[in-house]
Design a protein around this nucleic acid. Sequence first.
RNA 1: UGGGGUGUCGCCAAGCGGUAAGGCACCGGGUUUUGGGUCCGGCAUUCGCAGGUUCGAAUCCUGCCACCCCAGCCA
Length: 475
Amino acid sequence: MSDSTPTQPTNFIRTIIDEHNQSGRFDQRVHTRFPPEPNGYLHIGHAKSICLNFGLAEDYNGICNLRFDDTNPSKEEQEYIDSIIKDVKWLGFDWKENLFYASDYFQQMYEYAEKLIQKGKAYVEDLSAEEIRSYRGTLKEPGKESPSRSRSVEENLDLFRRMRKGEFDDGSKVLRAKIDMSSPNLNMRDPVMYRILHAEHPRTGNAWCIYPMYDWAHGLEDSIERITHSICTLEFEDHRPLYDWFLDQLDVYHPQQIEFARLNLNYTVMSKRKLLKLVQEKYVNGWDDPRMPTLSGLRRRGYSPEAIREFADKIGVAKTNSTVDFALLDHTLREDLNKRAIRMMAVLNPLKVIIDNYPEGQVEEMEAVNNPEDESAGTRKIPFSREIFIEREDFREEANRKWFRLKPGKEVRLKHGYYITCTDVIKDAGGEITELHCTYDPASKGGWTDDGRKVKGTLHWVSAAHAVKAEVRLY
RNA sequence: UGGGGUGUCGCCAAGCGGUAAGGCACCGGGUUUUGGGUCCGGCAUUCGCAGGUUCGAAUCCUGCCACCCCAGCCA
């Protein structure tokens, strides 16, 4: 609610929250959560969600939990948990004491499941996965009810308890909600709540051999944490009726699920499955390979958290499937780097330049501005001498008028150095240019003269004798 | 001929009945010791299409069309 600062772009989620605050539905509370599954590293798409959830909490004076949705031990690892914590922190968000794990609620979820069985709203299924699929029907045809559906409450309870004890093999039974096999929404056709999985969990070890499915678990996690707005992506829109159904059946605290469009960036793979494949099959050197769109990859590549957060603000939040131009991400990075980054000079593909009229053996300390956009960044000294390197592509033997870098007879400025004029081009037997001879103007020290001379081109350079080798990665 | 969504400038995105914000990209021009930056200017008579209601519609109604999602014991 600031009056001077440009208003933050609004979005439909804020509108919904404002309405809730008006009606008092959540007692003016705003409590969101970012619920990653620790089955991979966070990427720029997750950053959109993180910024949204934590940003909303900040703006509405609320809270945002970091909650690991660790309900499938067959895919999840501690390494991912650690990386996610690191990346969210790096982005600049603080969940305070609110770091949670779905696995912390396994016992409570189990008890809720028994309650549902007791209500006659859940049953243990004997059908195989394939059978369940065929019983489910299709998009156009209703499913049919499983024989297991008519089991008694007592039998279901007994079977479910034995599932929990480990009496059955993986895949031999599941617990399903008893809803409606002919619902046009396939999610309501008796969805699976628990599957048997004799797998070691990163946090609960071997304490459990049945694990809750997303639809059953997620709403309970939100409810237990008293989340107000459970924000997720569009593909869960069809799941909301089920999210609501479970909470209604249990008659427990009921958050509002809201769906928004996930981020798509052109030229960018955003599928966790595909990124995992790139890592596992060694197409890249790990999750933090600078070519990866992961936060750790972007970090190595030089992206700042500020730039990523600004990007998240600029792309907005809506329900339209869209693909953002990568140029916008680059723009926010440049904007940030431009005002903060210290400038350096480097030459990638060196061409030697000998300044004939510069005293041999002489070295001058030139003063260079660290950042023209920020005076407080100060200055540094850089050595200038008779032999320097410039970028090979900064010289052309033949060039038209629009070329304002170096060419024979042309005067250019060496940034923070002197004006030089090319007098001679030396080539080897193969016609390859090996070095340039130039003369400098002693009156142009620092790269400026007061005589009104127009020197438009400015080149980067390094003193040959002082140059330091560096590893440079170009992407 | 199932259900759930979405359609506003090349790409995002405001707008919620009173006569099309903003950003990116792009195009001019000034300035500039990074062909960077910066500054000034330009860039949708039109909101998927067709009707209708209204003094007035991107906004309301009707009908089309296009695209996305759903048949994991993944999330």
